Amino acid sequence: MSTVVETVTNLVQPIMARHQFELVDVEFVKEGKGWYLRVYIDKPGGINIEECALVSDELSEQLDALDPDPIPQAYFLEVSSPGAERPLKKPEDFEKAVGQYIHVSLYQKIGQSKVYEGTLEKLTAEQLDLKVNLKGRFKTFEIPRSAIAQARLAIKF
């Protein structure tokens, strides 16, 4: 984890606790010529724009007060909902997703692919069982958690 992400995570956690929001993710990335500090937040029932603005204002104040500045380059601060296809990163994210339709990207192929979408049927500390529709036939893949590069909720079409 980068120093910027660690610093921002530590700063935003008390804000999350105070407002009873959940910190989903923090990322600091360069896109094109600009740097973006993105903070994804949520709460049961979903987060709204006013709540995002509230967290943005409070976090911005705290970042401005730090000396030395932990982010010396110019950047854009974005506070938002993780959206309908929220990432699954923490163990509790996966636990909440049992029974839901998810997208999983793998480091290496399992079966014929490195990417699967299906229903998360079962979860253990070592693996997840994903029920996938392959051309009208359902197959359950046992995917080691260590093989997962990225996972997120998915919208079923």
Rank of each mutant, 00 (worst) to 15 (best):
V12P: 01
P14M: 11
F21D: 05
L23I: 02
V24G: 00
V29I: 02
K30E: 09
K30L: 04
K30S: 07
K33C: 00
W35H: 12
Y36G: 05
L37P: 01
R38M: 13
R38C: 10
V39T: 12
Y40G: 00
Y40N: 09
D42Y: 12
K43N: 04
G45Y: 10
G45D: 02
G46T: 04
N48T: 13
E50H: 15
E50F: 13
E51G: 10
C52S: 11
A53Q: 13
L54F: 02
L54S: 08
L54I: 01
E58T: 01
L59V: 05
S60D: 04
Q62R: 15
D64W: 02
D64P: 04
D64K: 04
A65S: 03
L66T: 11
D67G: 00
D67C: 07
P68D: 07
D69V: 06
D69I: 08
P72F: 01
Q73S: 14
A74Q: 09
Y75N: 06
Y75S: 06
F76W: 00
F76L: 15
F76N: 10
E78I: 01
V79E: 02
V79Q: 03
S80V: 14
S81N: 08
R86G: 05
P87T: 12
P87F: 09
P87H: 12
P91T: 06
P91I: 11
P91F: 08
P91E: 10
E92Q: 15
E92F: 08
E92W: 11
D93S: 05
D93T: 10
E95M: 13
E95V: 09
E95P: 00
A97D: 03
Q100S: 15
Y101P: 11
Y101I: 09
H103Q: 14
H103E: 14
Y107G: 04
K109Q: 12
K109H: 11
